[in-house]
């Protein structure tokens, strides 16, 4: 499995943010999702590109988080959820019968709205995922942990207290730790569910910088409430409204010249 992962993970220079015409990496085709009888996502088709930040925006309850959670199949955890349609990541149908969810989640990492570090030390938080995936030797662990903490711009702040509890960190630090934890196992895609919504402006700015940094190496899909944030960090933006995809285009286009009236109303703050 490590073999299949490596080629994609070699950091390569990213070409300038491309318009949504290049070869798609995540293909969402006609996805509908039901909670019991109610339909939360309505026939959504969208193609996301590799090593690009795509933002999902829309008023609350529009299904953007739900769609995000479909991408690493976290919706499997909820009772009574049913999904139609297909989602392909890197050409593999992730809802196919032979797919191992565990393997999928290894390749598609996730950062949650509320930071959720394990009640362990900072070191152990990052080591947890690595150990799960077979990194056992102390030296390997040490290097990988330092690497990912540095990538998450947290290393300088915590290098002296790696073995103290992660719960002692500030909210922003905790969230960056969660990002470090997610990137430590070198996923291909990172899903972020409103990662900065509970943080103060300074911590938010650091997370945003970090995301811009990380897109060199990872494909990032971020759900956000904050339209300025979407405008600042994303290359492409998808606007959702009550379970439907209204518009998907480059961020510049969405925020300056949207094709749909509803998009324009939303981004200009007329509703939502």
């Amino acid at each position: 499995m490590a073999e299949t992962l490596t080629p994609k993970l070699v950091p390569k220079e990213i070409s300038a943010a491309s318009a949504p015409t290049a070869a798609p990496f995540i293909e969402i085709e006609g996805v509908s999702l039901y909670y019991g009888a109610s339909r939360a996502l309505k026939n959504i088709s969208v193609h996301l590109e590799e090593k690009v930040v795509t933002a999902f925006i829309g008023p609350s309850g529009c299904g953007k988080s739900t769609l995000l959670r479909c991408l690493n199949r976290m919706n499997d955890l909820i009772d009574g959820v049913r999904i139609e349609g297909s989602i392909k990541i890197g050409g593999h149908d992730i809802y196919a019968k032979d797919v191992d969810v565990i393997e999928l989640r290894k390749r598609v990492g996730m950062v949650f709205q509320k930071s959720n570090p394990f009640p362990k030390s900072i070191y152990e938080n990052v080591a947890y995922g690595l150990r799960l995936h077979g990194v056992k030797a102390k030296s390997d662990l040490d290097t990988r942990i330092e690497e990912s903490l540095q990538q998450a711009a947290l290393w300088e702040e915590v290098k002296d207290r790696l073995h103290s509890s992660a719960l002692g960190l500030s909210g922003g630090q905790q969230q960056r730790l969660c990002i470090a934890r997610a990137i430590a196992i070198k996923p291909e895609v990172i899903l972020m569910d409103e990662p900065a919504s509970a943080l103060d402006p300074i911590a938010t700015a650091r997370i945003e910088d970090l995301i811009l940094d990380l897109k060199k190496y990872f494909t990032i899909v971020i759900v956000t409430h904050n339209m300025q944030q979407a405008a600042r960090i994303s290359d492409h933006t998808a606007f959702f409204y009550i379970g439907e995809l209204v518009e998907f285009a480059s961020t510049t286009k969405i925020f300056t010249n949207p094709a749909q009236k509803r998009t324009e109303d939303y981004v200009s703050g007329r509703f939502g």
Partner: peptide
């Protein structure tokens, strides 16, 4: 496109390992 059966089996229990148990 997952078939109906799979969906139904997946729909109960939080994250049962209904898939890939051979693995």
């Amino acid at each position: 496109m997952p078939d109906q059966n799979q969906n139904r089996r997946r729909s109960h229990g939080w994250m049962g390992i209904h898939r890939g148990h051979q693995a």
